[in-house]
Design a protein around this nucleic acid. Structure first.
Ligand SMILES: [Mn+2]
Ligand SMILES: [Mn+2]
Ligand SMILES: [Zn+2]
Ligand SMILES: [Zn+2]
Lengths: 154, 154
DNA sequence: TTATAAATGATAATAATTCTCAACAACAAT
DNA sequence: ATTGTTGTTGAGAATTATTATCATTTATAA
């Protein structure tokens, strides 16, 4: 419904303001999409989403906006192995990603215990740590079935 | 010295054989480079290394070979954020990477405790897990000094 | 309001990656 | 060792992804 959409745009606008990022329609809608979607969308998906929702946008603006959000640590880039496309994800609550190497589906796991390794990294390297990411690669339950049912070579 | 180089090539050749990968000069030298280097090299670095060492090679072969090794879980791809280039690393002994967002230096941390999260991922998602990677982003000690000594805006 | 600095977007330019296919090489079977 | 089969290599073309350009528009603060 329309009020719901208005509300997510408002939430995004406030998030922009609190990060001292100039508010534009394109940034609002891209951020609200990333905040509410579970799709971990690619550049192309984001571009299409924005236009589908009645906003004007160019690919250049999508690239610029996502880089801006990454620089502000609002979102993360995920290298989803095969296909080679980057995927994007709002990253307020720490979590990690389980990625199907067959269909590229990305599933969230909300367990921040992997973050403990940051402390070890600091102790061992002297780096000033900004953030960290954990990715697990495997085969999703659906693809396990699909692959099992494939005929084998005789 | 020459015998040492011969030896690493031999080790690589045996690794290819045990993975049922057809042995070619290009594959041998690329794998031996990844096995011995700590540079986490990019495609371009690998391409130059192979030619510098007297082997003929094309970029297409470097791309093909690295993809083959990734598919066999011999090496991993690391998305080194800025610059956008993929980096490659022999991955027999589990470890993770601490990456400087300023100079792109990649440091190994040989601590496999991050691997424990694979079990949680399996339990929560039902994925059949093949491998996992952990990356920490931050500023290396050298860049911390460089950035501190920069004049600030008044 | 108005001024100013910044953002947008159409398009061009560049860079990265994949494709094509003829020549070549590995290796298993004889 | 020779041969045949199958898979690999590589030059260059084609494609795709990403960044740069810059005139126009817009957000925000004074
Ligand atoms: Mn996520
Ligand atoms: Mn490494
Ligand atoms: Zn799948
Ligand atoms: Zn550094």
């Amino acid at each position: 419904m329309a009020t719901q959409e208005q509300n997510t745009l408002l939430v995004a606008a406030n998030k922009l303001k609190s990060n001292k990022i100039k508010n534009t329609p394109q940034r609002q809608v891209i951020l609200s999409y990333l905040m509410t979607s579970h799709a971990h969308p690619s550049i192309e998906m984001i571009f299409k989403y924005v236009r589908k929702n009645g906003f004007s946008v160019s690919l250049a603006t999508v690239y610029n906006t996502l880089q801006l959000f990454v620089d502000h640590n609002l979102i993360i880039e995920i290298a989803a192995d095969s296909g080679g496309h980057m995927r994007y994800d709002y990253f307020e609550v720490p979590h990690y990603h389980v990625i199907c190497v067959n269909c590229n589906k990305i599933v969230d796991v909300f367990d921040d215990s992997y973050k403990k390794n940051e402390k070890i990294a600091i102790a061992k390297t002297g780096y000033q740590v900004l953030n960290s990411q954990y990715e697990v690669y495997g085969v999703c339950p659906e693809c396990q079935v699909k692959l099992k049912n494939k005929a084998v070579r005789i």
